[in-house]
Amino acid sequence: MKILIVDDERDVELLFRQKFRKEVRSGSLELCFAFSGNEALELLGHENPPKVVYVFSDINMPGMTGLELLKNIKERFPQINVSMISAYGDSENFEKAMNSGAKEFFTKPIDFESLRAEIVTLISQHNSQSNG
């Protein structure tokens, strides 16, 4: 299962790779990264249909914001789940994200346990789907 993480902070990649080290090694999870909204859309547009099934995106990024990216993805790839990660856990952003079809809303600092739980559920769903 392939997931995409979008954040303008490049160290996020290292962090995620280490956090999901086991899952990546076992082959149950594949991670890819984009550092801006445009980069993410390019990456998704590259494969048809995209292998990515889940996108985690930061909201606060220069250029295209996470919320704009969310709308774009939902328009072009409605099958992909998108969850938002934001440093600003305010209700306004939360409402906007949920109204635009976000699956979950995580606040920074990321609680990796809940994130892992989310991903683990995804993996099991994914496996059962591909098995079925």
Partner: peptide, 24 residues
Amino acid sequence: AHEIQNPLNFVNNFSEVSTELLQE
């Protein structure tokens, strides 16, 4: 606040993940 929060998150996250890595 945002600019400090970001590096602080990294400090926390990387120290946490390092603990996990050391246990492994």
